[in-house]
Design a protein around this nucleic acid. Structure first.
Lengths: 226, 226
DNA sequence: CGCGCAATTGATTGATGTCAATTGGAGTGG
DNA sequence: CCACTCCAATTGACATCAATCAATTGCGCG
């Protein structure tokens, strides 16, 4: 996917690293970032807080994700990115991105691809939110997370760590906290998933996928640069 | 935004035009298009049909929109694009896009921007679906459509034509048809909006925007190429 | 052991989906 | 111009789903 010279270009990007505690903001809503941010470890989320205090999470990000690459083009952030756990992030100045893209159209296209896959995931969330039953909505998210985490070696044998509270999950799914809890119990009752503390185990992926009407095509994990 | 040479590049793209009747597919789910499609006239929508027959519309497109530009990178369509009204479309081969992008990095970035704005709109839909009241959800969509249509001269003085049935709207909002109808009545009762036949008139944009918690920043209409 | 936060539960209210008519309006043929 | 047809909009009654409110339990940690 990526040639040695391209790898060199990427590794040559100056970036600033930063450690964040759970709850801190990596990027602020309404800001006009001059750099974009890659998560190196930990879970983060894009969130929008409405006037009435309600919160919606529009994306969950895992290590390796370029969380606000779209800010390279969009200029004004329409949401924040917050740390759901302690995490580490690398900030790449937009001028560096520009430099890399100028030297390698192929890398530019991989960056573009990254934002486009983001969009595909968002479409799946819209579909879940609008037309899937609560258990399927939650199940779909679990399938998505599992495959994404597996692609970066953070999941295997159906198991991964997901140290995120039910309240956060509620804001991602558009549920109330209580409803998350009950939906989770329903899902456990199917026997397809075990969820204990911060460890999720998918006992029957195919079963869960059918229940959740999950089709992995949209994640395009095959063509990912790594 | 676009220099004369760039305009020349765009106008030089070979493309195939096609007329479509209401209900026809511009692009099919699971297909692997070798061209991407611009809507020239009429309303279209991205839709996903689930196994159980439920349908979700994940985007509404208006004339000027590049409806499946992401297919240039994603290869496999995770949804269809259907005509909500009779419409005209232009199909641009991916090899032409590649040629244009190679000659003008700036145009390449505008294409990228187009997909990124798409993503911002999708995030707004996720937020509406998850955390906004029914009237606000519908109101938000109306605000969005108005500004987008205004930007391409298809709306003025608060008025635009939207010849789309309530059933389609239901699939876009994730509501039932009956619920769309009742939410529409509630919205009319606020006095902010008139909706008669296929003509929508926003009588009080600011009022509607407050009700819907609408913040136009995300549409980035200022930086749009046209 | 006791604190504090997250998970869980129960009871109730409110929002939305479903089913089944009924109404309204545009187009068509007589 | 009128009767008819078809489809979209609207309405009413009812069933479900999910939010809210208010405890209570469970668990990790000092």
């Amino acid at each position: 996917m990526v040639s040695p010279e391209e790898r060199g270009l990427i590794e040559g990007m100056t970036m600033r690293r930063r450690l964040l505690r759970k709850g801190e903001e990596l990027v602020s809503q309404h800001s006009q970032p001059s750099e974009s941010c890659i998560v190196l470890s930990g879970f983060t989320a894009r969130e929008v807080v409405l006037d009435d205090g309600k919160r919606q999470i529009t994306a969950l990000h895992i290590p390796g994700d370029f969380v606000d690459l779209h800010a390279f083009l969009l200029k004004v952030m329409d949401h924040s990115v917050v740390a759901l756990t302690d995490c580490e992030a690398a900030y790449v100045p937009h001028r560096e991105l520009l430099r890399v893209i100028d030297r390698s159209a192929h890398l530019g296209r991989l960056f573009w691809l990254s934002t486009v896959i983001d969009g595909a995931i968002q479409r799946a969330w819209i579909t879940s939110s609008g037309r899937r039953a609560a258990t399927a909505h939650l199940g779909h998210l679990i399938c998505e997370l599992y495959l994404r985490l597996q692609a970066v070696d953070l999941a295997r044998d159906g198991t991964f760590s997901f140290p995120v509270a039910q309240g956060e999950l509620a804001d991602a799914l558009g549920f109330s906290l209580v409803h998350v809890n009950r939906t989770l119990q329903e899902l456990r009752a199917t026997g397809f998933v075990r969820w204990k503390g911060s460890t999720i185990t998918i006992l029957d992926f195919d079963g869960l996928a059918v229940l959740s009407q999950f089709d992995p095509t949209y994640l395009n994990l095959i063509t990912l640069p790594r």
